[in-house]
Design a protein around this nucleic acid. Structure first.
Lengths: 359, 359
DNA sequence: TTGTACGGTCGAATCGATTCGAGCAGGCTG
DNA sequence: CAGCCTGCTCGAATCGATTCGACCGTACAA
C-alpha cells in the first residue's frame, strides 16, 4: 500500500490530517477518531494500527481547532483584567484569586486566557472574537458591557468577581463595607478616637492625595468606596489619604503626609490593603514611632506581605475561595445548571499591629 | 417573510448562525460573512440588511470556533509557566516579561492562554490539545519535551524565554553568568574580599540552607547555577547561602545565617535577585549594620522593589524587552519567516547599596 | 456600438474533526 | 436452531464559518 499524500492546507505547512492516518491504517476516519478519543468502542488491534499510522506520518493528534468546533467546547476560560499585565499582577489578591480560579475549573481541564490591556490603543480587548467556553471578569467596570451582552446572547457563561460590569451576571463578592466597619470597631474598642485612613485609588487614573468631593462622587472603583463607607460608619469624620495604587510605596507616601505633624497625628490608621498597611508601618518606624505602641495599624486582605516583620492586624478576605467559587460556578453553568453568585465575608485577624492608644 | 427557525446545536442553547442571518437578510451566507468581516466587497445597502437581520435574531457575530478552524488561526498564544499561578506571579521579572510579550504580539490581536500547574495531579498541563497559534515557554525544564515536539510537528511556532525546554526552539536568553561576574567585579574593585552570595533555589523543591555538592550537581534550575558561576569567576571561595524562593523573606533568612557571627561576617553580599537583596538589606539593618557602610549589597534584575528605601546596586536585565522579543519572534514565525533567538545582556546599575569596605 | 473593467453576489467546496444510526459478525441462551 | 445482544466498523451528516472562482450588471472608453 502506498502512503497517501497529506491533505493540503491554506497555511505554509503541509498538514497531516486524521483522514490521512485513517487511510494509511485502512480504517474509516470515524474509527480513527475513536482510536484517539477513546469515546467509543475500538478493538485493540485497530487502535494499534491507527497509532502506528499516526506515528509513521508524524501526526500529532487531532487538531484542537477542528475539535473545538465539532465538540462545541474549546477548553478555554477567558479572564478579563482591565489593567495591563504589569499592573494587574502587582496585586497579590488578584494573583490568589486567579490561583483559586485554576482550582475551580480544574474539572474542565481548561486553560485561562488572559484579556488585559496591551498598551496599544489600536488593539482593543476583544472578548467576543475569542473561542472561549466561558468568561470571568475580575474587578471590571461597565466598560465591556456591550461585549458581555454579546457573549450572553451566544450562551457563553459569565461570572464576575467583584467590580461592577453590568448585565445579569452571577457575582462573587466580599463584604467590603461591613468588614471595614468591623476593623474600625476593633480600633474604636481599643480606645482610639484620632483615626485616619489610607485608601485605594478611587478611579483608574490613580491619583494620590486628599480626597475631594468630586473624586468621591466620580468614583468608578467600588472597593475603595465601600471600604471608606465602613470606616465612616464608625468614624464619620475620619481623615482620608488617597493612595495612587495598592503598594507599600504608596502607603508610605500617604502615611508620611498623615503623620507629618505631631500635633495632629492620628493614633491609628486604617489602611485599605495590607500592602498599604506595610507602607504605613514603614513610615511610622521611619519617624521613630513604634507600632503598635505609638501608632496602631490595620490592613485589609490577609495576604502575607513579603518582608513584613509584624503579624498584621487585618481583615482576611478569602481570595482563593473567591476564585474557586467563580470557577465552580463556571463548571455548573457549562453543565447546564443555573449558578448564582456568592457573597463571602471577611474575618478580623488581630495581630501585633494594634493596641490601645498611649494615655 | 417569515423568520427562519434558528439552526439547532448540540448544546442546550439554540444558537443563531450566520446562515440564519443570511436567510433573513435574503443574501447568501458568503455575502453575510463578508458583511461581518469586511474582507471582500459588499454594498452598503446589503451590509445594512445583514446587520439588521443579525440584530433582529440576536446574532452576536461569527462563532470564533468555526472561524478559527476555517481561517487556520485562533488568535491565541499559549504561555507555559511550570509553577502554580500563586508562585509564578510572585516573580516581578516574570510579570514584566509577560507584559513585554503582550506588547510583542499586539500586532496579532492575540490573547495569552496560561498553562500553569493547577495543583491537581489528575489535570496535567496539556499544550497539544489547546487551539493555539503559537506557544512561549518561560523558564521551563525539559518536562514538556514530548508535547513541544508534537506542536512542532503541527507547525506551531515555539519560543523559549530562558529555561532549557529542549528541542530546536528559538531562545531568548540573558547573560546570567557574565552579568553576575560584572557585579562581582564591581564589588572586588571596591576592595571587598570577604564576600558571600545568596542564591535562588537550585531545584523546584525549594530548599533553603547550605549548598551541598549533591544539590549543585543535581540542579535543574539554570539561572541559579549560571549566576553562581559568575560570582565564582571572581570569588572562587565565595560563601553560599541558598534561599528557598526569590522573596524578601527568604533573603532575610539566608542573610541572617550569613551575618550571624560577627567574626566571620562578610563585608559584601551578592544576591541573585533584587527581592533577595532587599531581604539581605533588611537583615543587616536589623543587626544595626548600615548599608553600604558596614555591608555592601548587590542584586540582580533591576526591578523596583516595592517599599525599598535604597537605590539598589544591581544587574539590570531587560525583562520587558525579553518578552517583547519573544512576541516579535512569534509574529515573524506566524508570517512564515524564520526566527532565531536573542541573547540579551544586563547592565550594572551602581546605586547606594555598595561602597568600599570599612578599613 | 463594442469591449473591458470593476463592484457585487452567489454556490460549491473547504477547514478537520466528531457524532450517530445502520449494518454485520460472532457468541450465547432458550 | 433461531433470536437476541454486544462489540466493532462504517458512511453520511454535522459543526459554522470562510474562500474562491464564476457570473451578472453597469459604466466608461475607444
Amino acid at each position: 500500500m502506498v502512503s497517501p499524500e497529506p491533505a493540503a492546507t491554506t497555511g505554509t505547512v503541509t498538514r497531516v490530517t486524521l483522514a490521512d492516518v485513517a487511510a494509511l491504517a485502512g480504517v474509516s476516519a470515524s474509527t480513527a477518531s475513536l482510536a484517539f478519543s477513546g469515546s467509543g468502542p475500538v478493538s485493540d488491534a485497530t487502535r494499534e494500527r491507527v497509532l502506528a499510522a499516526a506515528s509513521e506520518l508524524g501526526y500529532a493528534g487531532p487538531d484542537p481547532r477542528a475539535r473545538s468546533l465539532r465538540r462545541g467546547r474549546s477548553g478555554i476560560v477567558g479572564v478579563v483584567l482591565e489593567e495591563r499585565v504589569r499592573a494587574a499582577f502587582l496585586d497579590p489578591v488578584k494573583i490568589q484569586t486567579l490561583d483559586g480560579l485554576t482550582e475551580g475549573i480544574a474539572p474542565l481541564g481548561a486553560g485561562l486566557l488572559l484579556f488585559t490591556d496591551s498598551g496599544d490603543p489600536d488593539a482593543p480587548v476583544s472578548l467576543d472574537t475569542a473561542p472561549v467556553d466561558a468568561v470571568v471578569l475580575i474587578g471590571c467596570s461597565p466598560k465591556f458591557f456591550r461585549q458581555v451582552e454579546a457573549l450572553q446572547r451566544r450562551g457563553i457563561p459569565l461570572v464576575a468577581i467583584e467590580g461592577a460590569p453590568g448585565g445579569d451576571i452571577p457575582e462573587i463578592t466580599i463584604d467590603n463595607r461591613e468588614a471595614t466597619r468591623l476593623g474600625a470597631e476593633h480600633v474604636r474598642s481599643l480606645g482610639h478616637t484620632d483615626v485616619a485612613t489610607v485608601t485605594l485609588p478611587f478611579e483608574p487614573t490613580r491619583t494620590r492625595g486628599e480626597l475631594t468631593p468630586e473624586m468621591e462622587a466620580g468614583a468608578t472603583v467600588d472597593t475603595a468606596v465601600e471600604r471608606l463607607r465602613g470606616a465612616r460608619d464608625v468614624f464619620p469624620d475620619i481623615r482620608v489619604g488617597v493612595a495612587g495604587a495598592s503598594s507599600i510605596e504608596e502607603g508610605l507616601e500617604a502615611a508620611r503626609l498623615l503623620l507629618a505633624d505631631a500635633a495632629t497625628r492620628p493614633t491609628a490608621i486604617i489602611a485599605q490593603s495590607d500592602l498599604l498597611a506595610a507602607g504605613v508601618i514603614q513610615a511610622a518606624e521611619e519617624l521613630g514611632l513604634q507600632v503598635p505602641r505609638d501608632l496602631s495599624v490595620i490592613g485589609f486582605d490577609g495576604i502575607r506581605v513579603d518582608g513584613l516583620q509584624h503579624d498584621l492586624t487585618t481583615l482576611v478576605q478569602p481570595s482563593v475561595a473567591k476564585g474557586r467559587a467563580a470557577g465552580e460556578a463556571i463548571v455548573r453553568m457549562l453543565s447546564g445548571e443555573a449558578a448564582s453568585g456568592t457573597d463571602f465575608t471577611s474575618t478580623l485577624h488581630v495581630g501585633d499591629t494594634t493596641a490601645p492608644p498611649r494615655a
